[in-house]
Structures are given as C-alpha cells and as structure tokens.
C-alpha cells in the first residue's frame, strides 16, 4: 500500500450479502449509515466532502435486490437492477415501453450500466447551491440561494416551491407513476408497500429529503401491475445536451383509447417541482375526449395553472404546456405531418 489517495474520504465500509443483513445493519446504524447503490449520486457527495457519513453500506453484493421477475400480477424489479437492464429487458420493452424509454434516456451508457432503479428514484436534487454545500434551507439553513434576484435558477421549480425551489431530477419516476407502480420498503420490523407517487415529497412535508425513505429502511423492489401494460405511452425528456444532462422537464403518460375517446389516462411530469407531479386535473379533464390537438391544447393549459416562474426559468411554463399537449394529443398529429 504505497499510495494513499484522498479523492475519497475515509469511512467504514460495510458490504452485506443479503437483504436481511442489510436491514440489520441499517437498523443498527440509523442515520449514521449512507446507503450506496450505483454510486452516481453518492460518490459526488462523498468526494466533495459535502456529506460525511461515518458508515457506507454498499448494496452491490446483495444479489436478491437485483433482477426483473415476471409474476402473475405484474413485474417486479429489484431496486439494485441497473438502468441498462431495465431499458433492454424484453418484458419491460413490450409491456412498459414508457419505462424502457425513460431508463434509456438517463445520463450516458456507462452511467446506465452502473446506476440502479432504486438509486434513480432516490437520488437527491442537483440544485448546485445545495450540492456545493451552501447552508440553504434544504441543508438546514435559513435561505434559498437559488430564489434570490441574482440566483441562477434556470433549472429550478415552477410548481410546489416552499422556501426551497429545487427539483427532483429522476427520469424514471414519472414513468413509474403513470404505470401505477408500488415501491417495496423494508425495515427490520416490517414491510410497507407504497404507491409510486406517494414515495416522493415536497419541501412543505420535509425540506431535507425528496422521498419518504427513513434511516434504517431499505428500498428493495418496484412492483408494476399489468394495469397499464401495452397502453398508448408517451415519454419525452428535454435537456440542454442530448447526453448526460438531467431533465429540464420530462413527461410520461399512459392512455387507453376506445371508440376514438380517451378512456383511462395517467400523466406525470418531473423537474417541474421538488417531487414528480401526477397531473390529476389534466387526467380528469381529458377523460372522454378525443386524443387530438384540441384536447392536448386544453390539457397543456390546465397543466400549468398555478405555475410561478423564478427569474430565469419562465421558459419552463410553455415547455411544460407543450410537453403535456404532445403527450395527450400530439402523437397522432405527428403521424399526419
């Protein structure tokens, strides 16, 4: 051991081999423990010394958290399954194309080979004031640096802001919401299964976290029912570059059309708020309508009601309006062009 590098800080590394062992470790170590999945979010925090956990719990050796299993009532994806595996899996591609599309648009190929579904859903916000260790609301302070007259907030929230204006950066989150997925969370004592949309929280609920996962809990799997399988899907992600970037906005939708009318529909957007937003008022408004440009126009307008721009992100309002318009009514229009 001639060379000691200090790119990474020192910590106690624990490498459980089973989910039971992982749960026991997390229960014992509580908030001292940092859960390491694919590492794409974690390593930045650790290298920058912004987060300084005493204990890092590496889940990469827990085989039972990996893999895609077809069950009688749906498909279960282990939380440590990589984004590449999800994007390329034939069952996912055939039944849940919206999820395959979302997973295939995350970051870059190597990152998709390493990044996991559980990590993509549980990653922290990319607000650079917060990521750089500024003592903002989210970090326990009493100011939001992004929401000041000179704050750089082009990527920040247009909806649901409460002191903090950071957004959730996940591409797969809105896809799981429209598929009505359930997330399986285990602690040492019990297991709870929560709806995808209830996993995420805004600053009005807890300003220090983007989801409900508590210290001591382990995100083990995602269960997707067949409810929305092979429906008409739409996913679109808008980003500055075609690669690596987090979404400026994304939209996911699932729709069943019968007799030319929207029968059932789900639609969600992300990077508009601190949590992915399921647009229930849009869903209600378009039910029974034809999936055409006029309905899309109406849906887009409804989607952005109540949106409040910051200094540099007003573009997100027409962007979100147009993404929702395309998700609801634009698919058929494009074919005629």
């Amino acid at each position: 051991m001639a060379v000691i590098r200090d790119v990474m800080p020192s910590f106690d590394l624990l490498q459980p081999n089973s989910a039971d062992e992982a749960r026991n470790i997390l229960a014992q170590r509580g908030s001292d423990a940092w859960v390491l999945a694919g590492g794409l979010d974690s390593f930045d925090w650790l290298k920058d010394r912004i987060k300084r956990p005493k204990v890092v719990v590496d889940l990469s050796g827990v085989d039972e958290l990996r893999g895609i299993r077809v069950k009688s009532d749906g498909v279960e994806i282990g939380a440590m399954t990589t984004l590449t595996e999800v994007a390329q899996n034939p069952v996912i591609r055939e039944n849940y194309g919206v999820l395959a599309d979302a997973a295939s648009m995350v970051a870059s190929p190597q990152i998709r080979n390493q990044g996991t579904i559980g990590g993509n859903l549980s990653q922290d916000t990319r607000c650079w004031y917060y990521r750089a260790g500024w003592p903002c609301y989210r970090a326990g302070g009493n100011i939001c640096y992004a929401d000041t007259p000179e704050g750089r907030n082009r990527e920040h929230a247009i909806l649901g802001a409460d002191r903090c204006v950071a957004v959730n950066p996940s591409d797969t989150a809105p896809a799981f919401i429209v598929l009505d997925a359930k997330f399986v969370i285990r602690s040492r004592k019990d297991e709870r299964v929560i709806d995808a949309e209830d996993y995420f929280i805004g600053p009005d609920v807890d300003i220090t976290r983007l989801h409900v996962l508590q210290p001591g809990e382990l995100f083990t799997a995602v269960r997707i029912p067949f409810t929305w399988a092979s429906s008409r899907f739409y996913f679109e992600k808008i980003r500055d570059r075609n690669v690596w970037d987090f979404p400026l906005l994304n939209v996911a939708s699932a729709m069943f059309v019968s007799n030319g009318r929207i029968d059932r529909v789900r639609i969600a957007v992300n990077a508009a708020a601190a949590r992915p937003l399921r647009l229930k008022s849009v869903e209600r408004a378009v039910r029974g309508m034809p999936p055409d440009a006029a309905t899309g126009e109406m849906a887009g307008k409804r989607a952005v009601q109540g949106a409040v721009p910051l200094q540099f992100n007003a573009y997100k309002i027409p962007l979100m309006r147009n993404l929702v318009k395309r998700a609801i009514g634009g698919v058929e229009e494009a074919k005629w062009a």
Partner: peptide
Amino acid sequence: DNVDPRMLLVHYIRDI
C-alpha cells in the same frame, strides 16, 4: 491485493 476500502477502482488499476 490488500486495499483501503475508500480506494477507487481507477486508482487501484493505475497505482496498484
């Protein structure tokens, strides 16, 4: 090899 837990793989490849 016996390595420090915090050692990155790239440093293992290059230095060890």
